[in-house]
C-alpha cells in the first residue's frame, strides 16, 4: 500500500544515556526509534500512550528538560543526556498524587482514560508556562491534546482549579 514505509536495512544501534523520572537509563536504540517506543517497549513505562503516532493527538506527551514534547515525534536519540519526565514521575516521593491529578479525579476529567496521561502532562506544562489565565487560554494551550470521549469541560475545570490553588 502507498502508505507503507519504505524498506531499509537497520542502521547501527546508538548508545543512549538519559534520565527518566530522576533515574538514569541506558539503552542501545535504533536511531529511528521514537522516544515513545523506547519508553513503552524498552523501559516498560507504559503510562505514556500511543494514540495516533503522528503527533496529532497528544496522548504521548512527556516533558524533556521540563518542556512538553510529543514523544512519538521525538527521536529517542534527541534526549541523550537530558531529563525526561513521564506520567509515572508525576506523583510525589511517597506516591501522593499531584494536585492536578487529584483535580482530574474530582472533576471527572476523563472517561476511557487513554488520553489522560498526556492531558496531565500537557496540563502541568500549561500551568508551568503560565497559560492558565482564563478558560480560553487553557483551551488554546491544551488544543494539541485530543479526548475522543469529549471530557474537555472537566479537563479545563481541573486545570483552572489547580492553577488557581497552586498559584500559577
Amino acid at each position: 500500500m502507498d502508505n507503507a514505509l519504505p524498506a531499509a536495512s537497520a542502521p547501527a544501534a546508538v548508545d543512549l544515556a538519559f534520565t527518566v523520572n530522576g533515574s538514569p537509563a541506558k539503552v542501545a536504540v535504533d536511531p529511528r526509534e521514537s522516544l515513545l517506543d523506547v519508553l513503552r517497549e524498552r523501559l516498560d513505562l507504559t503510562g505514556t500512550k500511543k494514540g495516533c503516532d503522528h503527533g496529532q493527538c497528544g496522548a504521548c506527551t512527556v516533558h524533556v528538560d521540563g518542556r512538553r514534547v510529543v514523544s512519538c515525534l521525538t527521536a529517542a536519540v534527541q534526549v541523550d543526556g537530558r531529563a525526561v519526565t513521564t506520567i509515572e514521575g508525576v506523583e510525589g516521593p511517597d506516591g501522593e498524587l499531584h494536585p492536578l491529578q487529584q483535580a482530574f479525579i474530582d472533576h471527572d476529567a476523563l472517561q476511557c482514560g487513554y488520553c489522560t496521561p498526556g492531558q496531565v502532562m500537557s496540563g502541568l506544562a500549561c500551568m508551568a508556562e503560565g497559560h492558565t489565565r482564563d478558560d480560553a487560554e487553557i483551551r488554546e494551550y491544551m488544543s494539541g491534546n485530543l479526548c475522543r470521549c469529549g471530557a474537555y469541560a472537566g479537563i479545563v475545570a481541573a486545570i483552572r482549579e489547580t492553577a488557581r490553588r497552586t498559584g500559577h
Partner: peptide, 23 residues
C-alpha cells in the same frame, strides 16, 4: 462518584491490552 479507575488513569497505571506486551 469518580470513575472507578480514575486514580489509575491519572497515574498511567491503568493497563490496556497493548500495555501487556512488555509483560
Amino acid at each position: 462518584l469518580p470513575h472507578e479507575s480514575a486514580a489509575l488513569h491519572v497515574t498511567g497505571e491503568a493497563l490496556y491490552t497493548d500495555d501487556l506486551v512488555v509483560r
